[in-house]
Design a protein around this nucleic acid. Structure first.
Lengths: 318, 318
DNA sequence: TTGGCTTATACTTATCCTGAGCATAATCGA
DNA sequence: TCGATTATGCTCAGGATAAGTATAAGCCAA
């Protein structure tokens, strides 16, 4: 059994599958994060990987270009998973989905396509903590999750469940961690509080606000949001979402929109400037309320100059 | 063209492919990182995904268990890529590889299998900077890469190439960044300095030290090392590689082995202790040189208590 | 038995980063 | 001219981090 790597299946040609490419395509417009959707805003763009594609990413690019009429810029792979064909019960997977995160600007999308942009917080209302949570939603979430925890068989399991909920949602005076998007989604799924869970067989109840999507698409979207929220902290990827020129406040609003929380204005400015990520264009923003702001542009040089990466080890410099 | 998500290929059943599961299985023994290899240490364990597998990860687990005789512990997905069938020229891919990172202990591997452990620095000698680079290798790398940079057509391209080399390898007094494992490998590939490049058609030259692997396996290994080096900094994954009880120095040596560089002893201890990652067992290490050290064990509670994640945004707490 | 070697462990120090807040500048409109 | 609003400069305190000093506790050989 142990042996050289094999490219052929041991049971012959029967174990062949199809591969779907799924895109989480993000843009930020007017301080709101948007994703490209199809099928009446219930699905992410996705298409099959075909032999004419030279590579997985090329396949995705080709597909998105056909959809939007514009070439795709920044793309990175998210995750690959096997479709369980959940609706069909315990079938083993005959198809896998390879998901990607793409960043673009809304204005780059051609017209005349069925696809359109949807605000991503329509699918994840609890992820927008910029104005705090709507009191109603906050209360609902906490009480429903507490009920779910209580419904466990043993006390230790009950405690475990509530601890998990408290960590991911920041209950009991814990800090909100904006990166736990996927963990929160999966918790709600397990707790049977979202439509996808009911669809897959959880007992019927009132669900929590938030639009569902077909298949695993909302899970993929959660993965994409989590990745992006993590990435904007150590790589200058926000600029893929910005117009060529922008004010620091616009930049800040975009970051806040993605992170789902507010940042300290003066410190944000300091952070951006000391990293020399931007340079002044010399121009001044027009049509603004209050004191006019300088316009900046991304200093593309940084991409070549640096290889940003955080370190948390007490390294020796010698 | 734009439309609902389709699971079927538009050209019929012809676009089916096979999926291989590839494992980067890591252990650390005596302060040396090892990976499980097969095929005379020239390939990573890999096996086809089959319909009997309930999920991708289950497929991988089943496969590794069959190989090593032990259940696999920590597993995370690395990356999915399409095999170009490089040897065959410009063929489009009919097979994809889904790679995983697995962490275990060497002593958990059963005997009587063809697979065995190899030190990962045999494949990446330049990644071990614990004792600094062997002077010979350092000199070779720098001069070969400089030559490659010089061989570019335009001066600006030459500058670009050398800048890239300097950033990834820490030339010109730049800091060494241990996370850039993949970037370094790909640079060497592009520069035609490793056997895989020659195999794929680069002009013949003397290659740089470091064992090659079949197919893309050394690239996958680089991906796994990079991921692990990044992850040990913000998640307590090292403990998956440690025995049940260990001294702080042993823990430090393992981290150093993975990171390929030394850490400051006192600060490392402080970091570990203040995060409360470990607890004393009460016992004292035997058979040691110098003052005997306390034995510690991983506090598994932290996994439930916390959701560790670094933040780099100037967030407002209000 | 003692001095030397090795590792463990406790503290100190200087520096930098980060969150937070104060103060002032510049623009518009009532 | 006042008030509202945003831009921008600056300070400050606390915490984290890199590095070094000092002491403790074993072993071993002279």
């Amino acid at each position: 059994m142990a042996g050289a790597p094999r490219k052929e299946s041991r049971t012959g040609a029967a174990n062949t599958i199809t591969a779907d490419l799924v895109a989480v395509l993000v843009a930020v417009t007017d301080g709101e994060p948007k994703i490209m959707t199809i099928a009446n805003a219930a699905a992410l763009p996705s298409g099959p990987f075909e032999f004419t594609h030279r590579s997985l990413q090329m396949g995705l690019r080709a597909w998105v270009e056909a959809q939007t009429g514009h070439p795709l810029g920044y793309v990175e792979q998210l995750y690959t998973f096997a479709d369980r064909g959940r609706a069909g019960g315990a079938k083993s997977p005959h198809s896998i989905s390879i998901s990607y995160l793409g960043l673009t600007r809304e204005d780059k999308v051609g017209q005349g396509f069925e696809a359109h942009w949807s605000g991503w917080y329509e699918y994840f209302p609890w992820e927008d903590q910029r104005a705090g949570l709507p009191a109603s939603l906050a209360k609902t979430l906490a009480s429903r999750l507490r009920a779910w925890a209580k419904s466990a068989d043993t006390t230790s399991l009950q405690r475990e469940r509530w601890q998990r909920a408290a960590i991911t949602f920041g209950f009991d005076d814990r800090e909100w961690n904006e990166e736990l998007v996927l963990q929160r989604y999966e918790l709600l799924y397990e707790a049977g509080l979202i439509p996808e869970a009911l669809r897959d067989g959880a007992p019927a109840t009132t669900v929590i606000p938030g639009k569902p999507m077909t298949g695993d698409h909302r899970r993929i979207l959660a993965t994409g949001i989590a990745r992006l929220r993590a990435k904007i902290k150590y790589r200058p990827v926000v600029f893929e979402l910005m117009p060529a020129e922008f004010t620091l406040l616009q930049l800040q609003r975009s970051v806040e929109a993605l992170a789902g929380r507010l940042v300290h204005k003066q410190n944000f400015r300091r952070l951006i400037e000391q990293q020399q990520l931007v340079e002044e264009t010399g121009a001044i923003a027009a049509d603004t309320v209050g004191r006019p702001a300088k316009l900046f542009r991304f200093r593309h040089g940084v991409l070549a100059e640096r290889a940003v990466a955080g370190t948390k080890l007490p390294l020796s410099r010698t």
